[in-house]
């Protein structure tokens, strides 16, 4: 039934001469234009909030750059295989298309898996604000660093022994805990990325990397001395609110792409036998979407991880 109706609408498959497009491709470009505005709004919000942040309040170096880089490569690979699969279809080679798309799906799922590992790491990574600030000298993440931004720092940040995700001070008290043992990070986020890199280089040349070991010593803090405790979740800070909102929205797009590709690869593949050209167009249009999702990540990665 839908078949006969679709034929009544021109340019579903063939290209209109004066525009050089078929309907679906134009529709996707328009959709992507709106997506640019959507992410544009969020990126602008990021810029706006970051410019307005108080000095020393924008965290640095809390995201895992090697894993982020690896994930970027995974996503770029998937973009490549989408393009290759479309080329294969254009040449009439369904089997090759299938192989490439399986790689695409594997990359996409892999991306989400790596991302959820990163997320979980943040959910169990805590910042603890103390009622009495620590002097820079006794602070594990700042010790020995001349360029520390403040003489005193009110918080310690790291993994907490035996504490799961999303705990708060109230929930820990409710559970009957009286103190926590935190393993502070090597650096405090109040050091800028540049200061952290400087310090890493200095340590590497002088001590051969022994600083890492001391940073893993646990620090036991009584709950009564804690002013606030938060995992690295949206509630923690504006930076993490931005990070989770942007990457989660991006992850939703990735998931949408996975659904579309999987549908076209299995139940939707019947169309290949009846209308190969239309099927190829669908891959092209979905591919456009995928490249866009990829592109968003290429902007997200440096903005959130590196800057």
């Amino acid at each position: 039934m839908s078949h006969s109706q679709h034929e009544a609408i021109p340019y579903t498959t063939e290209v209109r001469e004066d525009t050089g497009l078929y309907n679906g491709k134009l529709g996707m470009w328009l959709f992507l234009a709106s997506e640019v505005m959507l992410f544009g709004g969020l990126f602008s919000a990021y810029v706006f909030l970051r410019l307005g942040a108080r000095p020393g309040e924008w965290p640095h170096g809390l995201l895992n750059i090697p894993i982020g880089t690896f994930n970027t490569l995974v996503l770029i690979t998937s973009s490549l295989t989408v393009a290759m699969s479309w080329t294969a279809l254009k040449l009439g080679d369904f089997q090759t298309y299938r192989k490439y798309q399986l790689v695409t799906l594997a990359c996409a799922v892999g991306f989400l898996a790596i991302k959820s590992f990163e997320y979980y790491d943040k959910f169990t990574h805590y910042e603890v604000w103390l009622k009495a600030p620590l002097a820079a000298g006794e602070h594990p993440g700042l010790a020995g660093h001349a360029a520390a931004p403040d003489a005193e720092v009110p918080s310690v940040i790291g993994h907490v022994e035996g504490v799961g995700p999303f705990e708060t001070l109230a929930s820990l008290e409710e559970a009957g805990a009286t103190s926590i043992t935190i393993h502070p990070d090597k650096y405090h986020y109040r050091l800028t990325a540049w200061q952290q890199a400087e310090r890493t280089m200095k340590e590497a040349s002088m001590e051969g990397g022994s600083a890492g070991a001391e940073a893993h010593e646990g620090l036991t803090i009584e709950l009564s001395k804690i002013a606030r405790l938060s995992a690295l979740v949206p509630r923690h800070s504006t930076f993490f609110a931005c990070y989770f909102t942007l990457t989660a929205l991006h992850a939703l797009h990735v998931a949408g792409g996975i659904v579309a590709f999987a549908w076209l690869l299995w139940p939707g593949a019947r169309m290949w036998r009846e209308e190969p050209e239309r099927y190829t167009n669908r891959i092209e249009v979905t591919g456009l979407f995928w490249h866009f999702v990829d592109l968003v990540w290429i902007f997200l990665f440096p903005t959130l991880y590196l800057l």
């Binding site: 505005m37 959507l38 602008s44």
Partner: peptide
Amino acid sequence: LLSFPPLES
């Protein structure tokens, strides 16, 4: 198309 997405964000 172009002005609604910022409100959505």
